[in-house]
């Protein structure tokens, strides 16, 4: 079918609608506020994006298989708390384990990843082997993880981290924060996982047509468990990063982040019906979210009203995205 110039323009506008709207909003904010389009602010936005991107990349695997993961936020909280208790200074008065020497941060990170990974594989097991719908299975895991975090910390906030730990957020390499480097490395690894390994291809196949995947000999169950396990480890990493950035943690850290991550994925083009989605989708989605938040803040929009804007953007973005596929038929 040959398309007219006008159709091509409309197609372009629909296919890139969200990005165009973001571009306009950012330009407008930049023009009206000269502190917005500065290197500093840019770095700031990237810093905010880093942990969010790690979460979104983790959750995108679940969404691509037609699922979701509601436990992400609580896993982040648990991870931040565990990391916090293991990495407090000896001379901090409210130290959680008064006699524990602060661990090496790599070891602390591995402990966090092992714990969240274990919970993630339990979720995956429930989805793959017990056939519990992902929405319900991850909802259950969300409750369990929150309870564990509460019992573990006794609901007390943590602080007084070692410099080694907080330097993850403050330290720089080539002038760029470690947090941003971590996000870049994770994005590269996930790209590799999605595109260059069997696991990635199996994930897209399961998302596209689970019955056909089974018939084509795809190890559906094993792949599902892996997806939820890897996702949970990424939430663990994100919690670890957020703890370092905030210099403290409480069980409520990460509350609601799963919803924002799912929304970001879909805005970027990960299809909730499964089978579609790339690393770039998660990056775009997270960038849209963070730019939107920053722009609204600079434009002086009331913090409470910002929620309304975010909701409207989700509506608009998803309806545009759905149009792409409807138009294809």
């Amino acid at each position: 079918m040959v398309k007219t110039k006008r159709q091509k323009v409309t197609d372009f506008l629909i296919n890139n609608g969200v990005i165009i709207v973001m571009f306009i909003l950012v330009s407008y904010t930049g023009i009206t506020n000269d502190r917005f389009l500065t290197g500093n602010n840019f770095i700031n936005i990237l810093m905010n994006m880093s942990a969010r991107l790690v979460i979104a990349l983790g959750i995108s695997g679940c969404v691509i298989t037609g699922g979701c993961d509601l436990s992400a936020g609580r896993m982040i909280g648990l991870a931040a708390c565990i990391a916090g208790t293991l990495l407090q200074k000896m001379d901090y008065s409210g130290k959680f384990f008064p006699n524990l020497e602060p661990l090496n941060i790599i070891i602390a990170l591995l402990i966090v990843l092992a714990i969240t990974g274990a919970f993630g594989s339990i979720t995956g097991f429930a989805v793959a082997f017990l056939h519990i719908p992902p929405f319900i299975a991850t909802l259950a895991m969300m409750e369990i993880v929150y309870g564990i975090a509460l019992i573990y910390t006794g609901a007390t906030p943590l602080g007084g981290y070692t410099e080694e730990y907080t330097s993850i957020a403050t330290g720089k390499f080539l002038g760029i924060s470690y947090l941003i480097w971590i996000a870049i490395i994770i994005a590269a690894l996930v790209w590799f996982l999605f595109n260059m390994t069997r696991h990635g291809k199996y994930m897209y196949a399961i998302g596209g047509n689970p019955q056909a995947a089974e018939v084509a000999g795809v190890p559906v169950k094993r792949t599902m468990v892996l997806i939820y396990m890897i996702a949970a480890m990424m939430y663990g990493l994100a919690g670890f990063m957020l703890g370092a950035k905030a210099g403290g943690a409480s069980v409520n850290l990460g509350l609601g982040y799963e919803m924002e991550a799912i929304a970001a994925c879909t805005i970027g083009g990960v299809s909730v019906t499964g089978g579609r989605g790339k690393v770039s989708s998660a990056i775009i989605g997270v960038a849209v979210f963070e730019l939107l938040k920053a722009s609204l803040q600079y434009l002086g929009v009331d913090a409470n009203a910002q929620y309304i804007f975010i909701g409207v953007v989700i509506f608009v973005a998803i309806s545009l995205d759905i149009r792409k596929y409807v138009a294809k038929k």
């Binding site: 069997r198 291809k201 084509a216």
Partner: peptide, 21 residues
Amino acid sequence: RGTGIFGCLSIKDNVGVSVYN
């Protein structure tokens, strides 16, 4: 449609899915 093709994937992925090993 039900148990053969992966409609949203490319021809390459449709062929490849059972031979990636």
